[in-house]
Structure formats: C-alpha cells, structure tokens
Nucleic acid binder design. Structure first.
Lengths: 225, 225
DNA sequence: TGGGACCGTAAGGAATTCGTCAGGATCCGG
DNA sequence: CCGGATCCTGACGAATTCCTTACGGTCCCA
C-alpha cells in the first residue's frame, strides 16, 4: 500500500487529508512539525510526503533539505497564496510539486497519484533465492525452504532490504545506518550490531557461523546470495 | 585524438618519439626547451606531457611547477640514470610518472596509455583482471582465479584501491600515505612496508618475487595489471 | 670493509570493533 | 488503561585489526 506522510499543523486540514487519502487506500501518517516530519520520514520511508510550508518549528525548505540529504521521496508542497517566495525556495530545495491553498481535494489526489507513480519505476524485481530462504522484495516477504514465513520487524526488514538490494557488494555501516535510521544516526554502529544479530538469528542456519550476512570488520556487512 | 606534447632537446630522441607516438595514433607536438613547453601547454592543452629533465634553459621541476600552477595534465618525466635527485624533486613537484633512459618504447607507450586513462576518469569502474585474481572496486571484493575470496582488512583494501586506481603508474610513498593514513602520516614509510608485505602475502603467487605490486626503490610502488 | 639508507619479514601487545545478553523505554492496538 | 511487540541502551567477553619493535637483507659509497 502506498504510504503518505502528511506534515501539517492545522487540525482541520489534517483531518480532511487523512479521511480523503485513507478513503483512496493510502496508508496515512501525520507529523505536526518539521522535527517529527524528519523522524517519521527516516523511520517509515513513505512513498509520498505532503508538506505544508507554514510549520511551527522549522522552515519548510529546511525540512526538504533534511529529507533530500538522503532520500529521493517525492515531496508535494502545500502553500498559501501569499507565500510565493517560499514556494520558489521550496522548489529549489528539491520539492517535486506544489499546490496552492485553498485547493480542491481532487486536485491534490491527482498530484499524489502522479507523484506515487513517478516514485515507483516498478521494474518487477525477482525474488532472491538462497539454499535456506527466499527474499521477495516486491512482496516484502521472507520465506524459509520449508514454506514457513519469517517474521521480521520493520527495522529488521529495512536492514535486510538494504543488504539484499546490494547483494554481493560491501555495504558500509554508514550507508546502512543512513538508509535504515536516517542520516543523523550515522555513527550509531551499535544499532547495527544488535539488529544484524537478530536477522542472523532468524535467517542463518547457524547464526554463530554466518553464511549469508557476512561482516567485514571495520567496514560494514555484505549479503551473499 | 589524444594529444601528446614532447619536451626534449635531443633531435634523435625527439624523432624516435614522434614516429612511435604517431604510429599509435597520438597527435604529437614538440617543444625544444622549457619556455616554449609552457607556451605550448597553455595553447594546445595536451592530454599528456612527456618532459625530459635535461633542458637547455629552465630546470625541469620549474617547468612542472609552471604547468601545475594551472593545469592537472599528466606529466611523464624522462631522466638519465644519474639524475636520482632530480627525479624525486620532479615527482614532488607534481610529475605523474617517470621513465629512466635508456628506455624501451613499449614501456613509454604503456606509461602514456596509463596517463591518458587517468586523465579521463571513467564513470563505471570495471573489475581489474589479472592472471591470478580479480579486483572489483565497486563491490569491494578480491577473488582468486580458483574462486576463493581474499579477505582484506580496511587498511589493506584502501592501499590496494589506491594502487589499482592508478594501475600501471608509479604512486609515490607520500601519495599512498596521504590517501590511506592521512596527510599527517606522510613520513611514516614503515607503515607502507608492513602493509605492502601483507598485500603481497595475500595476492602474489610468490610474495618474495612480486609480480603485481612492484616496488620502485626510493619512490613508491606500482601496480601492474 | 664498514656504515648508512632503504626495503622486507615476523611477532606481540594496544586499541578498536564485533557479538551477545538483558533490562528498560516506547509505541501501538484493543 | 493495559499487554505485547519493538526498539534503544548499557555492559562485557571475544575477535579483529593496527601499530610498534626487532632483526636480516641488499645496495651504494666512502
């Protein structure tokens, strides 16, 4: 399901957006200020971000900067008619589209559809098959050879996805931390150790002798398919 | 077409260079002294400069200085055997490689090829293949011909990467130390000896007779693909 | 022939990095 | 408001990597 993050501090507008988006089968998350917007983006990896420029804490284009530092997620900007200058700044910062308030819900939905379509150049990725399990990136599923499904938490999945997408290649600790936790957690290598261990417990035949998720001491990890 | 500027005052050598380079489809220009060498470089923007150290007017390293003031064009230095000191000075001044006279034309042509390749940085880096192993810079992997993977530590990898990226070309100890350990370790040449030895142990078929990682006494090391 | 400069090799302890466990905080759905 | 799942955090032993020291060899030149 397409995940949409709505960043806005007007309760009435938020409610309207949530209802209408949910009615069209979008998975909606709300953030009421820039700070939590950045956090949510890093955690949830939404497919589209709808961002109101008039936020209480941070300037809108700073939010865009923060997201663009590490993610290419489409950003649709909501702006009032008297915010022409901010609009330009936002587009410069890397916004993809903007809608002027007041706006019709149909127009916004059309923009969201377009953005989501652009975001998923869906070249259907084949599942990655190993001797012990199958990773289906498209379906977000890991299945063991005996048919049972492996239960992964959201963080575990994101980590596995990052490793599997670059399978065969070394993925540095920095890259993993940025992709899974967000750029500000670049140095928290301890997170990695903990979650790599959990992935190994769930996937490796012998977690103490990892075969698929290899560690490259001092550099990062590598998935061997 | 690759343009080569030859700076030399010995008519016989100049003739030999012109013929051989032209036969390999290089566009050759000649300068007989340092002054006109600087002028030609500024006007013609050659892709490679071949510079003889024994010039009539200016000292060789001054010519290098003059060029390096505004251009990063690769400079290959020709030097006689009794010009050890000038060689080092030239490399420090920013020369890229050197060839000691008398030299084989094949050797010089190989150096020119390496210099030209370095001048035109390639976007996608293909793996470097030798008779005994394959270095895949993108994946951060070294694989032996029998399929086994070579385990390298971070420092060993950085060192190998620095050498392989400039394969065929001499890389001075200074450059290696700066790239791998940082500028403040420029003089710790012993680090190099230790880690070069480890690389050879892991890569060379006969570490006591290095074939791929050659040492250039007093200057640095060179990777031969 | 002796000394100096440079290079190669080996080995051990210091420092960093990794794996693991477990308790507590936080979030979310009922 | 509660229970369960998930995530963060701290602690500690194990493993890995790095730096340092020591010694032997070669080459060149006084």
């Amino acid at each position: 399901m397409t995940k949409v993050l709505v960043v806005d501090d007007e309760p009435a507008l938020v409610r309207a957006l949530r209802v209408n988006l949910a009615a069209h089968d979008y998975d909606v998350t709300i953030a009421y200020d820039g700070r939590s917007a950045l956090k949510r983006t890093a955690q949830d990896h939404p497919d589209v971000v709808i961002l109101d420029l008039g936020l209480p804490d941070i300037d809108g284009s700073e939010v865009i900067d923060g997201i663009r530092g590490w993610s290419a997620v489409p950003i649709i900007v909501l702006s009032a008619r008297d915010q022409e200058r901010e609009k330009v700044t936002a587009l410069d910062a890397g916004a993809d589209d903007f809608v002027t308030k007041p706006f019709g819900m149909d127009e916004l939905l059309a923009r969201v559809r377009a953005a989501a379509r652009r975001a998923q150049p869906n070249d259907d990725e084949p599942a990655i098959v190993t001797d012990d399990f199958v990773v289906d990136l498209a379906a977000t599923v890991v299945r063991r050879s005996d048919g049972t499904e492996v239960r992964l938490t959201p963080t575990e999945w994101q980590l596995l996805e990052a490793l599997v997408r670059d399978r065969g290649r070394l993925v540095t600790s920095q890259q993993l931390l940025r992709q899974v936790w967000g750029p500000q957690y670049e140095h928290e290598r301890h997170y990695l150790r903990v979650f790599i261990a959990q992935l190994r417990r769930k996937l490796e035949p012998d977690p103490s002798q990892p075969r698929y998720i290899r560690t490259e001491a001092g550099m990062g990890y590598r998935f061997i398919g």
